[in-house]
């Protein structure tokens, strides 16, 4: 069976959902071979083995603290020696840019934002803000594909004991250096990209996200926001949904005090069910909502949250 090379940037004992999805997809397409972005630990090797990885390649020492160049050189080197049928990476900003450079290094086609990869390596993705679903193929080299989270149901495979190969890192060439890294505080809620349900707030919440958060917590949902809300500083930019924020397809999206501008819809209109709460009956978001409420977020959201808690007993 053909090797499918999977890039796991930060190998840990507890793989993230997106990482498990990549391995599950690789297992479906062939034999998962993993390249770590950092030196291997026994726990991380066991973790990827549990999802069917048969081999792990990892740098012998930590990569230089540079942007993208080091990872790209590493992934391309491992791809040259393992000759995979495809290379899969996460669809993050880093993942896409690493893929971009690997594509040039290997003279290979790069396809981003994949939601599915078929056995013949045809990729399905949605384009033009969810307006079209296209299938695309790499026609040259090894397909280099970045896969969106929530695309594959992660399943455990017959556990393998992957052989670990240490890789000497070659000179990655000119790069920007990382001079400082600050961690952002974690919210404790589900990650926006992985969540089954998302409750988002916009300018209409008028600076107060507590009711959005309360409804999100009652539903076990992630919190999102419009750009008006993030630009105002009411909530951190990483919560922004839309063209220049996250593109998500949850089972349920609740937009509260959001008008439904084209750039916002670009990030959420492939949700399965859309609910909108807005005081303006002409708000464009109602045109795409399955259930719309013309009302005030300050009364509707707390009532819904209380009702959910009441029914849950």
């Amino acid at each position: 069976m053909a090797n499918i090379l999977v890039f796991i940037n930060t190998p840990t004992a507890q793989l993230g959902k997106a990482q498990r999805e990549l391995l599950t997809l690789a297992h479906r397409l062939g034999e998962p071979v993993v390249v770590f972005g950092a030196p291997a630990t026994d726990e991380a090797v066991t973790a990827v083995g549990g999802l069917g990885a048969t081999a792990v390649y990892a740098p012998s020492g930590a990569l230089d603290a540079t942007l993208i160049a080091g990872e790209a050189a590493l992934v391309a080197d491992v791809a040259r020696s393992t000759e995979p049928a495809a290379v899969l990476l996460p669809n993050t900003a880093d993942g896409k840019e690493i893929a971009a450079r690997v594509g040039i290094k290997l003279s290979s086609g790069v396809i981003t934002d994949a939601v599915d990869v078929a056995a013949d390596l045809t990729v399905t993705k949605s384009v033009l803000a969810g307006g079209y679903t296209v299938t695309a193929r790499a026609t040259h080299g090894v397909p280099v594909i970045t896969v969106k989270p929530n695309s594959v149901e992660p399943v455990a495979a017959a556990a393998a004991s992957p052989a670990v190969t240490a890789v000497e890192v070659t000179d990655a060439g000119p790069a920007a250096t990382v001079t400082h890294t600050a961690d952002k505080p974690a919210s404790g809620r589900p990650a926006l990209q992985d969540a089954r349900i998302v409750v988002s707030g916009g300018r209409g919440v008028d600076g107060d996200f507590s009711q959005v958060e309360e409804l999100a917590d009652a539903l076990g949902a992630a919190v999102g926001a419009s750009r008006a809300a993030t630009d105002a500083g009411w909530i951190e930019h990483s919560y922004q949904v839309g063209q220049t924020g996250k593109t998500i397809s949850p089972q349920l999206y609740i937009g509260a005090g959001i008008s439904g501008a084209i750039q916002h819809k670009a990030g959420m209109q492939t949700a399965q069910v859309i609910v909108a709460v807005n005081s303006d009956e002409d708000a464009p978001i109602f045109e795409i909502a399955d259930f719309g409420i013309v009302g005030d977020v300050r009364t509707v959201l707390p009532q819904a949250a209380a009702e959910i808690k009441r029914r849950q007993g």
Binding site: S108, S126, V134
Partner: peptide
């Protein structure tokens, strides 16, 4: 190095039910 093989327009979303809050919209 890539080729788009097929493109399907996604059917446009249509509006569903819209209600006006008369005190019980949350429920």
């Amino acid at each position: 190095w890539t080729h788009v093989e097929d493109a399907q327009a996604r059917p446009p979303r249509t509006a569903g039910t819209v209600i006006t809050d008369e005190g019980d919209a949350g429920v």
